[in-house]
């Protein structure tokens, strides 16, 4: 029999998890926007807004220490991060476009090098996804093969019901365990009717054809036409649920400091700058080309997945109005 949970009980679930010493992360108000942040109580959960930043930071923080060093009388002491101190986390109220990006990121972080920071957080996190009933003109999840009801990446998936509450779908063992832990909060419902999901999230793009065009068009005047306006900031990459480039910096002094891993973006001029001073991506259009190529060709070549979930954040927040959905349509039309 299908399980359901009321909104009240969903908030109660958060409180119960907190009592049981889980870290609970979900959309929370930060000024006028929402961000995925640790919740201090169930009441704080924001249900009607797509958070400004994606949920990737739960696994891939904006900035984290990866080791510390200190010069002592005994010599240089290097201290590793105690991975066991990472919190057991429940990520709640995650939009399908954010949840779907997590398995995509798994590929790159567990490829030739196993990124223990990402993977440890991933192991310790249960994801409660939530279907979208609202979209805007920047949303294009359906165009890249997902949908407002996509369950990819979620352990439990909630779908709003007509008349309130959520239908609850168990997708993994982790999800099952969470459900089994708080059985009283979920009830069996026979006649649960799902609310209509968000529409207008874009007609399906032919990603195969787009990739085929990208295979042949590393050099194309299109790149300059679309990216000459690019200002070279990292807003698109930093808001993106799937962009995962990072830089590593040692900060502090020679006596005491930290090695830190933090977000980086291919739009930055310094991203590919060599120590010699040579920069293979010397102009902005080459940098923007890399963004498209990485998402729709290189990642596909390597892992058979697309590095874009159609959340639309880069469209909404590009300082110069670059619209990746429009660019994909343009490429699709050129590949006829």
């Amino acid at each position: 029999m299908p399980k359901t949970i009321t909104e009240h009980n969903l908030r109660l679930l958060i409180d119960s998890l907190l009592k049981d010493r889980f870290r609970v992360v979900g959309p929370r108000l930060a000024g006028a926007m929402a961000l995925y942040e640790p919740l201090a109580k169930g009441e704080e959960l924001v249900l009607d807004q797509l958070p400004r930043r994606s949920a990737k930071e739960v696994f891939f923080p904006v900035c984290e220490n990866i080791l510390s060093f200190e010069r002592t009388e005994a010599g240089l002491q290097v201290t590793d991060v105690d991975l066991s101190a990472m919190s057991e986390t429940v990520l709640v109220g995650v939009r399908p476009c954010d949840a779907a990006a997590v398995p995509v990121l798994d590929e790159v972080f567990s490829w030739d090098y196993k990124d223990e920071f990402f993977l440890e957080r991933r192991r310790k996190t249960t994801i409660i996804g939530m279907a979208c009933t609202k979209s805007d003109d920047a949303c294009f999840c359906s165009a890249v093969g997902l949908s407002p009801g996509e369950t990819k990446g979620s352990d439990l998936f909630l779908t709003p019901l007509l008349g309130g509450g959520y239908g609850c779908q168990v997708l993994t063992d982790k999800g099952q365990q969470l459900l089994a832990r708080y059985p009283k909060l979920f009830v069996d419902t026979v006649d649960a009717r799902l609310a209509p999901l968000a529409g207008g999230t874009g007609d399906r793009l032919d990603l195969k054809r787009i990739k085929a065009w990208l295979d042949d068009n590393f050099e194309s005047p299109l790149w300059n036409d679309i990216a000459e306006r690019c200002a070279g900031c990292g807003a698109c990459a930093f808001l993106c649920p799937a962009c995962h480039c990072f830089d590593i910096n040692d900060e502090g002094t020679t006596e005491l400091g930290h090695r830190r891993k933090h977000w980086d973006a291919c739009g930055f001029g310094k991203f590919t700058n060599h120590a010699s001073g040579h920069n293979p991506r010397d102009l902005q259009n080459k940098r923007y080309r890399n963004r498209i190529m990485h998402k729709f060709k290189y990642y596909d070549d390597k892992f058979g997945q697309t590095l874009c979930t159609g959340c639309g954040r880069c469209i909404r927040h590009c300082p110069v109005g670059i619209d990746i959905a429009a660019i994909l349509r343009e490429i699709e039309s050129r590949s006829q």
């Binding site: 200002a231 990292g234 930093f238 910096n249």
Partner: peptide
């Protein structure tokens, strides 16, 4: 994300102080 710097007509320095790391004038990590 440096959007503030990148859209500013007056932030045209080829070497921004915040990108320097030898010496590091200010921390570049977020």
């Amino acid at each position: 994300c440096m959007a503030c710097r990148q859209v500013c007509p007056f932030c045209y320095c080829e070497q921004c102080l915040c990108d320097r790391n030898r010496p590091q004038a200010l921390e570049s990590t977020p």
